[in-house]
């Protein structure tokens, strides 16, 4: 069997978190399948980049280093990855479900005519029996994701095509160094052989990437609001509690869609995945795509007027009440009884 490969993204000379998380997952999948872990990195000035990657257990690092290859552009990156995959025929290929990964992976899947599953929340190895064809497929990648607005959880497989491709959002997998002394092999790709002249037709005129100021992902306490919060103004209460407790404010997709809170604070399958010590869900009903982004929280407190809200079923504490009543009481008690 061939190897597992991870497409690694780079921003300002650093490999981004989601790529390191995928390398960690890729390493464990490779171990299960008894194959090697490969990585591909495309950009400019990539001297020494292997030092950031080897510790995550990368055996073979494919590098395409050319001034034209950073910042990211769809066509040259797609050409390089497609051609590389045709040569080394990976068993599994993983991409971050980022602006880049979600732009790139489908283009590659189309070129290679292989299956791609977006926004997986879990990746496992398993066996599949096709009863019609009377065929057993061993060691397939089970790509598990919520579907249909989060009302079902689907396990997707690609029995016949390779690589089995999947994208995963940042924060879904854990990032873990395998060994600081792990050593892989660097393979430099001759860029001219992988790109076409017409791949460089797009010109980047202007680019502003902000360092994410909001650090919801690493916050230990998250106060999150849903559509039930009722208005943008009512979110002020959540910000106040977060401020008092030293936490961050997040929101459900419904709250983002309603314009109560900005998109970068969205928690759930199509937003950020979090695992805080404490998650306070205010006026969130608990659709599964939201749950997918927060159910690993150590403690969940739900505040909801509806005792039947599904969120209550995964909560440690379900407060049946109005956030306008409950949050000020929490803030008041905390201010009075600490420091």
């Amino acid at each position: 069997m061939n190897n597992v490969i991870v497409y690694c993204e780079i921003e300002d000379g650093n490999i981004v978190d989601v790529s390191l998380e995928l390398l960690t997952k890729g390493r464990s999948l490779a171990d299960l399948l008894k194959v090697q872990l490969d990585a591909v990195i495309i950009g400019k000035e990539l001297k020494g980049i292997e030092q950031q990657l080897y510790p995550f257990g990368v055996d073979n690092l494919y590098v395409a280093d050319d001034p034209r290859l950073y910042p990211y552009q769809t066509l040259p990156h797609a050409s390089i990855v497609s051609k590389l995959f045709e040569e080394i025929k990976p068993e599994i290929a993983l991409f971050g479900a980022t602006s880049i990964g979600r732009d790139l992976a489908p283009r590659i899947a189309s070129a290679l005519k292989c299956g791609l599953t977006a926004d997986c929340t879990s990746l496992e190895i398993g066996e599949h029996e096709d009863k019609k064809k009377k065929k057993i497929y061993k060691d397939l990648l089970f790509q598990i994701r919520p579907a249909f607005g989060g009302n079902i959880i689907a396990t997707i497989i690609n029995p016949e095509t390779r690589p089995q491709m999947a994208t995963v959002r940042e924060g879904v997998m854990k990032k873990e160094i395998k060994s600081m002394s792990y050593k892989g092999k660097r393979i430099n790709l001759e860029v001219e052989k992988y790109v076409r002249g017409e791949d460089f037709v797009v010109r980047i005129i202007d680019r502003h990437i902000e360092k994410s100021k909001i650090n919801i992902k690493n916050s230990q306490i998250i106060i999150s609001g849903g559509y039930g919060v009722g208005s943008k103004e009512n979110f002020d209460l959540l910000f106040e509690l977060a401020d008092v407790l030293g936490g961050e404010v997040g929101g459900s997709r419904a709250a983002v869609d309603a314009g109560y809170i900005t998109h970068e604070r969205q928690i759930g399958q199509t937003g950020i995945t979090v695992r805080p010590k404490l998650y306070i869900a205010c006026g969130i009903s608990g659709a599964v795509q939201h749950r997918a982004g927060m159910d690993q929280s150590a403690m969940i407190i739900s505040i909801n007027k509806d005792p039947e809200a599904p969120i209550n079923q995964i909560a440690d504490y379900a407060i049946i009440g109005d956030i306008g009543t409950v949050l000020p009481k929490m803030i008041k008690y905390y201010k009075k009884n600490t420091k």
Binding site: C114, G115, I153
Partner: peptide
């Protein structure tokens, strides 16, 4: 279609 749905399961919240 290279992707096949192996299994679909209706979301049931883990009772806790």
């Amino acid at each position: 279609s290279p992707t096949k749905v192996k299994k679909v399961f209706n979301v049931v919240f883990t009772a806790k």
